[in-house]
């Protein structure tokens, strides 16, 4: 293990490490802690210049309920779910199929298709934006949840395919060979043999894509206009304009907007990190 385990160091070093940990964490999360505290401050604190001290009273309930009552954030959150959940299902579903195809079969064009998915995944959004917005408008889906979902599914399929293909490649191929010898159809090999083994990959991708899509801001801005479509990221920008310097309200709204992916992360931490660090160990 590197660095040398601290347990082998002198007690003095061990103690100072244990003190440094929370201090470093506090500094690292200082901006976040600041905004969390601001979100429970009464407005009078900010007016009186009490920005960093203890809040004079707990106004969390007031601030958070005010945000929900006086802004559209409730709608925005619902919209975000309506975009995020179908995208997760669609992109993960499609990439189970594509990943399987690219991992199991040797055929001409396999690598070309694979690298098409990989490369497409890295292009800047701006080069897609004008044609995608036009296409969506032509389909009559501009400023609809469906329009956003369709694009997100398509784009995320690139990353998901990369992920799924590498995951399936690492499975024991003998399993598939022996099924073929027994005359099991290709579809059944996929659905009965490989798919059940893909559960961890599906879980990892689902949390990752949930976070990516929830946090998407660019497409939310470009493809959604009205209150009943706009996801919370784009909505936040609007709230910032509405609240101007009422930082206790902006902070509360920011915390609310950040909460779902954070909850997802803490609930599914193992899968999340497994997904994110794919490839960080081999190659």
């Amino acid at each position: 293990m590197f660095p040398t385990p601290i347990a082998k160091a002198s007690p003095w070093v061990q103690t100072s490490y244990k003190i440094m940990l929370p201090v470093a964490l506090f500094i690292w999360l200082l901006p976040l802690i600041g905004i969390a505290i601001t979100s429970i401050r009464p407005a009078s604190d900010l007016a009186a210049g009490n920005y960093f001290g203890m809040p004079s009273s707990f106004a969390g309930v007031e601030n958070y309920s005010s945000v929900f009552k006086n802004s559209n954030i409730g709608w925005y959150i619902i919209n975000s779910f309506r975009v995020t959940i179908p995208t997760v299902i669609g992109a993960v579903g499609l990439s189970c199929l594509t990943g399987f195809a690219l991992a199991v079969y040797r055929f001409r064009g396999n690598l070309v298709v694979f690298f098409l998915f990989v490369a497409g995944n890295f292009v800047p959004f701006q080069i897609l934006a004008i044609p995608v917005r036009d296409l969506t408008t032509q389909l009559g889906l501009y400023n609809t949840t469906t329009g956003l979902v369709l694009f997100h599914i398509a784009f995320q399929t690139g990353f998901c395919t990369l992920f799924m293909r590498n995951f399936i490649k690492a499975l024991p191929f003998a399993l598939i060979e022996s099924a073929r010898v027994e005359g099991v159809s290709e579809w059944k090999i996929f659905s009965r043999i490989v798919l059940p083994l893909m559960r961890p990959a599906i879980a990892a991708l689902a949390v990752l894509i949930f976070t990516f899509i929830w946090n998407d801001y660019f497409w939310a801005t470009v493809m959604a206009q009205s209150v009943d479509v706009r996801p919370v990221t784009a909505g936040m920008n609007e709230l910032k304009g509405q609240y101007k310097v009422a930082w206790e309200l902006i902070s509360a709204a920011a915390i609310v907007a950040a909460l779902p992916p954070v909850a997802m992360f803490f609930l599914m931490q193992k899968h999340f990190i497994a997904g994110l660090t794919l490839g960080a160990t081999k190659g």
């Binding site: 499609l94 098409l116 497409g120 080069i127 296409l135 369709l150 694009f151 599914i153 398509a154 784009f155």
Partner: peptide, 14 residues
């Protein structure tokens, strides 16, 4: 299915 949507929404728009 995956390749089709990827072509329509990502590769062709480039």
């Amino acid at each position: 299915p995956g390749l089709l949507v990827f072509m329509i929404y990502v590769i062709i728009p480039i």
